[in-house]
C-alpha cells in the first residue's frame, strides 16, 4: 500500500548569464529561480497493482518515482509505503522496495554479475537458501544463470537490464519501481521484461510502478495509468475508462480507387493524402456500418479498416497537442 499525500518538489535552478560576462557576474551574484517540478500530487496505490506513469519529458514522472523510492526528499507532503514514511524510516522502508532505472545500473561495471548479487545478498541479509531459490525462479523467467559469470561491462543492454531486474528482486520486495525500463531495448528484451513484470506481479503479488514512453508497456502491463504533465496529475484511472471518457471515438480509414474523398456531416475528415482518407467519428453519432454505406454511395471504396482510440490518442489529448 502506497500513500502519496500532497507532495511538492521544487528545485533551485541557478541562472547563468550568457558568455564570459555572464559567468563573471554569476560569481558575484547568483540569481536562482525556483522551479516547481511536482505540484501537490496525491494518490494511493493498492498492493498488487501495476501502475504506469506517463507524461512528456520533464513532466515530473522521474521526480515523482524518485521521491517514492526515497532518493529525493519532497519539499512538502509525505509518502507512506506500507504505512511508514520513506524519508523518516528510509533504511527500514527500502528493505521492502526494489528500484530499476533503465538508464542507470546498480551493478558493478568491472566485475562478474554474480559479484554484484553477492554484495546485495549481504546488504539485504538474504540467507543462501533463499537467495538460490529466488535465483532459480528468476532463471525460469529471464534465463539469468548463464549471465552470472559474465562481467557486466561485456553485457548487452538487454542482458544488463535483466541483471538489474534480478538485482532489484533478490530481497523479495513488495514494491518494485521501474523508471523507463524498456528504453533502448530490442523486441526480444522488451518481451522478457514484460513477462518478468507480469510474473512477479502474479506470483508474488508485487506492486509495480513504472514510468515509460513505450505505449506497448502500458497496454500490455498496466491496469491503471497516471498521467502527469507540468508536475500535475492530469488523469488517474483505468486505461479503458480513460479512453472511453476523453477519446470516445473511432477512426475509419478508407482507401478509395481515386483521389477524391467525400465528406460526411456526422464525422470529421482529418486526414487525406492520395487515395487514403481517415474519418474520426463518435460512437454515439453514427455506426461504422452506416458511415461506410454513406461513403460508398459517393465514391468507390477499395478497402476499409477501423481503429479504436488508444493510448496514443489519450497521450496526445493529455499533452495538449490535440484539441477536442
Amino acid at each position: 500500500m502506497i500513500e502519496v499525500k500532497n507532495i511538492c518538489k521544487s528545485y533551485n535552478v541557478i541562472q547563468k548569464g550568457e558568455g564570459f560576462r555572464g559567468a563573471l557576474k554569476g560569481l558575484i551574484s547568483r540569481e536562482s529561480e525556483k522551479v516547481q517540478a511536482v505540484k501537490n500530487l496525491s494518490f494511493h496505490i493498492q498492493p498488487g497493482e501495476i501502475v504506469g506513469f506517463i507524461g512528456p519529458n520533464g513532466a515530473g514522472k522521474s521526480t515523482t518515482i524518485k521521491m517514492m523510492s526515497g532518493i529525493l526528499t519532497p519539499s512538502s507532503g509525505e509518502i507512506l509505503i506500507n504505512g511508514r514514511d520513506i524519508h523518516k524510516y528510509r533504511k527500514q522502508v527500502v528493505q521492502d522496495i526494489g528500484v530499476v532505472f533503465g538508464q542507470r545500473s546498480q551493478l558493478d561495471w568491472d566485475l562478474r554479475l554474480g559479484e554484484s548479487f553477492e554484495l546485495l545478498r549481504h546488504i539485504y541479509r538474504i540467507d543462501k537458501a533463499k537467495y538460490e531459490e529466488t535465483l532459480n525462479i528468476m532463471d525460469q523467467i529471464l534465463e539469468i544463470k548463464p549471465l552470472l559469470s559474465k562481467p557486466v561491462r561485456q553485457m548487452s543492454l538487454g542482458q544488463r537490464v535483466k541483471g538489474d531486474l534480478v538485482a532489484a528482486m533478490l530481497h523479495a520486495p513488495s514494491v518494485l519501481f521501474l523508471d523507463e525500463p524498456t528504453i533502448g531495448l530490442d523486441v526480444g528484451a522488451k518481451y522478457s521484461l514484460r513477462k518478468f513484470v507480469k510474473e512477479v506481479n502474479e506470483e508474488r503479488n508485487t506492486t509495480v510502478i513504472l514510468t515509460t514512453h513505450d505505449l506497448g508497456d502500458i497496454e500490455q502491463l498496466c491496469d491503471r495509468i497516471i498521467i502527469i504533465n507540468n508536475g500535475e496529475l492530469i488523469e488517474d484511472g483505468n486505461l479503458e475508462e480513460i479512453v472511453d471518457r476523453i477519446a470516445p471515438y473511432k477512426t475509419l480509414v478508407v482507401e478509395y480507387y481515386d483521389e477524391k474523398a467525400p465528406e460526411h456531416a456526422r464525422c470529421e475528415l482529418f486526414f487525406h493524402e492520395a487515395n487514403v482518407a481517415k474519418y474520426r467519428f463518435m460512437k454515439k453519432d453514427i455506426t461504422a456500418a452506416a458511415l461506410i454505406q454513406a461513403l460508398s454511395a459517393e465514391a468507390q471504396i477499395k478497402d476499409v479498416s477501423i481503429e479504436e482510440a488508444g493510448i496514443d490518442d489519450i497521450i496526445r489529448i493529455a499533452y495538449g497537442q490535440l484539441k477536442e
Binding site: S69, Q95, I123
Partner: peptide
C-alpha cells in the same frame, strides 16, 4: 547516490 539511497544501509 541514487543506489546508496535505495539500499538499507548508511
Amino acid at each position: 547516490f541514487d543506489r546508496y539511497l535505495t539500499r538499507p544501509m548508511s
